[in-house]
Design a protein around this nucleic acid. Sequence first.
DNA 1: ACAGCTATTGCAAATAGTCGCAATAACAGA
DNA 2: TCTGTTATTGCGACTATTTGCAATAGCTGT
Lengths: 161, 161
Amino acid sequence: MVEFKDYLVLFRQNGYRLTSQRTALLQTLTDHKGEHLSARQITENVRSRDQNVDTATVYRTLELFTKLHIVNEIKGATGISYQIVPVGDKHNHIVCEECGTTFDYSSQYLEGLRTMLVQDLRFELHLEHSTLSGVCEQCQTNVSLEQYGNQRLLSRRTHGT
Amino acid sequence: MVEFKDYLVLFRQNGYRLTSQRTALLQTLTDHKGEHLSARQITENVRSRDQNVDTATVYRTLELFTKLHIVNEIKGATGISYQIVPVGDKHNHIVCEECGTTFDYSSQYLEGLRTMLVQDLRFELHLEHSTLSGVCEQCQTNVSLEQYGNQRLLSRRTHGT
DNA sequence: ACAGCTATTGCAAATAGTCGCAATAACAGA
DNA sequence: TCTGTTATTGCGACTATTTGCAATAGCTGT
Ligand SMILES: [Mn+2]
Ligand SMILES: [Mn+2]
Ligand SMILES: [Zn+2]
Ligand SMILES: [Zn+2]
């Protein structure tokens, strides 16, 4: 309650209101700091505290929180997930296209890119929440990669059993 | 038909088959090279050539093509869109969080990041298809930005009309 | 050209996510 | 504390995306 004073200020400053539903969402998200929660998981958890919050409200709230940078929207292999923005632990995500694992890495890696984009394109990159993809170390060795033009291929040769 | 020989090889090599539906998809996508098409647009266009392709097939095909890097999946402000991978014109996307515009920029900007991730984390980044977000030049000047902790806020002060 | 194997498809049913709207509840101002 | 304004919510309807399964059609080998 009193912990969310910062959020309350943030809401007020932008013309939004702090409702019981939003508080429930914040509670759920902070309780699972560091985890990647799906919309469904969030809905269920929120409902365990505030009986009948509608899914529409959850989605609308998640969208708002994302705009306000209260949460990060992460597009992993299993779909979209959310996590409260980790203060003091700014990290971004890279997803392995082979095994689907999501890895964290420091935002510092993006500083160079950020600088270049600002200089050349005047575009101010937000580096608190991005998801890039590629192939992790393990999958690079396990899998026999091949070339097709300039692109990597799937390793899988046969389907089914 | 004969143009898609490369894709046929790609399919075969990985145990996939070149069906009439996949050909229709390829046709549609190449016809709109450079554009960002929604699943709906693709479905409609595909149906104009191959009467009754089901939406399920379209989604499944799009997923396959994405895995094979035949198409890029782009998450813009209006939702998800697809485009056939542009050979010789490798570019990535940055979306403005304010106005929703999607901008293209050369993959070269990501080379530095790619090198670092390989060296430090042994993660092989795929830089043919990424979408980052931030604020474009126009919105930076138009909008009065404020600070909250370390994060940028929305500009909007009041809602409604 | 034919046969067998199995990847792929359409269909239908299930989920997930979105939207308009009238009722409600924050909140700024008195 | 009371009041007016309007952001927000729940609900129902709607659209989008996913999934299981039996029928179909690529493809490889003969
Ligand atoms: Mn994380
Ligand atoms: Mn583009
Ligand atoms: Zn992996
Ligand atoms: Zn903009």
